[in-house]
Design a protein around this nucleic acid. Sequence first.
DNA 1: CGTGTAAGGAATTCTGACACG
DNA 2: CGTGTAAGGAATTCTGACACG
Lengths: 102, 102
Amino acid sequence: MSYKDKKVLPIGSVSELTGLSLRKIRYYEERGLILPERSGGGTRKFSFTDVEKLMDIANQIEDGMQTFEIKKLYKKEKQKDKDKIRDEMIRGQLNAAFKMTK
Amino acid sequence: MSYKDKKVLPIGSVSELTGLSLRKIRYYEERGLILPERSGGGTRKFSFTDVEKLMDIANQIEDGMQTFEIKKLYKKEKQKDKDKIRDEMIRGQLNAAFKMTK
DNA sequence: CGTGTAAGGAATTCTGACACG
DNA sequence: CGTGTAAGGAATTCTGACACG
């Protein structure tokens, strides 16, 4: 995992990087759009990937999209990723089986 | 500037990533080995580059090197970088002058 | 010299709630 | 629904100092 995915940024830094208020960031988490980790004491820790996602979210909100729609969108994205991986695995196995017939 | 150079990490995250105590990190700053930025309120903000540098420093300390030696080393590195840039600029200008003679 | 620690205070973050719309 | 704000408390960080070696 690269630096981009390390959950290490405090919400203040994320707010500065994205230009979003603390309230908005917390709300988007509440709606399940992002999933920061928590320190032992309970403070949120974000990754740069989260920061990028938040900037995406901000754009979509500006376009009048609602949080649950954005969430659905992300679910679809994830499903696509899974489908892709499944396809690749199937292709790999077919390929292996094919070689055995030679 | 990439994510790696953004000064956004709190000292706690840096401590976790490097395995160094808060005391050590602050001390290495005091000795001028790293230069985190400060938030408006005065809290330190580090970059991933700082994190990498700290891991380097930790190794050198383990090898018995003293902080002022490490600092000297970094100064030399910087000087080399400057020399390199100067060389490239001179070469670029010579090249341009040479083309004009054609 | 490099590092741990206890001390007191300040900055940061947290949650739940009320407000507006 | 999405967001601002005031409120009280808890976690995080800060500095300067003493200790040891």
